[in-house]
Computed example of a mutant assay.
Amino acid sequence: MKKIILNKGKDKAAWQLHPWIFSGAIAQVHGKPQNGDIVSVFNQEAEFIAYGMYNGNSRVAVRLLEWDPQQEINEAWWRKRVAKAVNNRKALLTENNNTVRLIFAEADFLPGLIADKYADYISIQVHAAGTEAVKAIIVDELANTLKPLGIYERSDLKSREHEGLPDTNGLLFGQTPPNFVDIIENGISYQVNIVEGQKSGFYCDQRENRAITAKYTKGKRVLDCFCYSGGFTLNAFREGAASVTSVDSSALAIETLINNVRNNGFDVSKHQAVQSDVNKYLRDLGEQGEKFDLIVLDPPKYAPSRSSLEKASRAYKDLNRRGMLLLNSGGLLSTYSCSGAMDIDTFKQVLAWAALDAGKEIQFIHQFSQPEDHPVRASFPEGEYLKGLLVRVL
Rank of each mutant, 00 (worst) to 15 (best):
K158A: 15
V195H: 01
Q44E: 04
N328D: 13
G359T: 14
A25P: 00
A136S: 15
I184W: 00
S379E: 10
K12L: 14
L146I: 05
Q288Y: 04
Y385H: 01
G197R: 01
Y203E: 07
A242K: 12
N260W: 11
A14K: 06
L6I: 09
G340A: 13
G24N: 14
A214C: 06
E132Q: 15
S379G: 04
F173R: 08
D37Q: 08
Y152P: 09
L309E: 10
G130T: 06
L223G: 04
P299R: 02
R283I: 07
H374N: 03
L327I: 09
E255M: 04
V376P: 07
S249T: 08
K10T: 11
D205F: 00
G383N: 02
V350A: 04
E372T: 12
L65F: 10
V274T: 04
G112D: 06
S307I: 09
L257S: 06
I194H: 02
D120E: 11
D68Q: 09
M324Y: 06
T256Q: 11
V222E: 03
N88T: 03
D224N: 15
E45M: 08
L319W: 01
T256K: 02
K220L: 10
E208P: 02
K360F: 03
S155L: 07
A341M: 13
E47K: 12
D205Y: 00
L319E: 02
D140F: 00
L390E: 03
D284I: 11
G265Q: 05
N193C: 09
L309P: 13
E384C: 03
Q71K: 10
P19I: 11
A107Q: 01
F266A: 06
N43C: 10
A241I: 08
M324C: 10
N57Y: 09
G56Y: 07
Y203F: 15
K387G: 01
L165W: 02
A13S: 13
K10I: 01
L257T: 05
G219W: 07
A128F: 06
L6D: 02
S200F: 02
I38Q: 04
I49S: 07
G201F: 02
L172N: 09
S243Y: 01
D205M: 01
K311N: 15
G219R: 06
P371T: 05
G219S: 13
R221C: 08
D11P: 07
A303C: 10
D343A: 03
T245Q: 05
N43Y: 12
A83G: 12
K8Y: 06
V100R: 00
K80G: 06
L386G: 02
D343S: 01
S308F: 05
A354K: 00
Q34V: 12
L110D: 03
V100F: 01
S276Y: 05
A13E: 12
N259C: 10
L223K: 05
A143L: 07
Y385E: 02
A25R: 05
I258S: 13
